[in-house]
């Protein structure tokens, strides 16, 4: 036999490339209707937002430099850069943007934000503080890095403890930073159990806060909800919505009950909570 199909029609009962079949027409990101709705109409904010949307750090640097000459740093961040990042989140959520696009946009946003912060000359008030860690014994940190990126680019101070973090160090960091939320990620079955230990250790210290637990393979809702304070995070970008909810006073019990409402979308893993 040969290693090729005689015709592509022969393959119809073997596979279908649904991603090609459903792909829509190419449009510029700024022409997307949800992006258009929220784009700042005036300069210099529009250019700042566009630099972020296009993930162009050099453009963000130039746009920020220009904007800071005539605009207060806080406005540069809130009315320009952040609007761009909101658009990026919307594009990612609807599948028009892919992860590398989001990361490049976050990098561009951080370039502008750091310049604005420097001009401000004092610590900018953040929405809140979040502590992030990868479970003890686990070296896999892509998930944690995503969570940190989403939180930082949405205005949170993040204490990033890194990977393979001893449980005692997590508890110390929580005591010191007094975060609104703790995020833990793990890939392996035998490291995810540390979430449980961290929860117990925090309880002993009289601390209660949501622990946004997520990760690959093994980390599922039933496991995360098997210990107090655990809230199963389905997608890394949900961390920002959960943190917003924590700032607004929602407890970990509320988050478990209202997860789809809080993140604002259908979430199969919480289908019983719709």
């Amino acid at each position: 036999m040969t290693l090729d199909w005689e015709s592509r029609e022969n393959t119809d009962f073997v596979y279908r490339r649904y991603n090609v079949i459903v792909e829509g027409p190419a449009i510029k990101p700024e022409d997307d209707k949800d992006v258009k709705k929220n784009m700042p109409p005036k300069e210099p904010f529009r250019e700042l937002a566009l630099a972020v949307i296009h993930g162009d750090s050099d453009r963000a640097r130039e746009a920020t430099k220009t904007a800071l000459a005539s605009t207060p740093p806080l406005d540069v961040i809130e009315k320009g850069l952040s609007k761009g990042m909101d658009a990026v989140s919307a594009l990612y959520a609807k599948g028009a943007y892919f992860l590398p696009d989001v990361m490049l946009s976050a990098d561009a946003m951080m370039v502008g934000m750091n310049m604005a912060d420097a001009k401000l000359g004092k610590a900018r008030e953040k929405k809140g503080t979040v502590v992030s860690f990868v479970a003890e014994g686990d070296p896999h940190d892509i998930g944690k890095n995503l969570v940190v990126m989403f939180l930082r680019s949405n205005g949170y101070e993040v204490v990033d403890l890194g990977r393979d973090v001893p449980n005692a160090d997590v508890v110390s960091a929580v005591k010191k930073a007094k975060p609104v939320m703790l995020t833990g990620t793990a890939l392996m079955t035998t490291t995810m159990t540390n979430f449980h230990h961290v929860s117990d250790m925090l309880k002993k210290e009289g601390i209660s806060l949501p622990i946004f637990g997520c990760g690959g393979g093994a980390v599922k809702r039933d496991f995360v909800e098997s210990y107090d304070m655990g809230v199963y995070g389905v997608k890394a970008f949900h961390a920002t919505k959960l943190a917003d909810a924590a700032v607004a006073g929602k407890t970990w019990k509320d988050m478990r009950k209202e997860y789809p409402k809080i993140v604002g979308e259908f979430v199969g893993e919480y289908a019983d909570r719709l």
Partner: peptide, 15 residues
């Protein structure tokens, strides 16, 4: 895991 720190950076940014 050699090279993973750089690989992770690249894969997350399409570099």
């Amino acid at each position: 895991m050699g090279g993973k720190s750089v690989l992770d950076y690249g894969s997350m940014r399409g570099d």
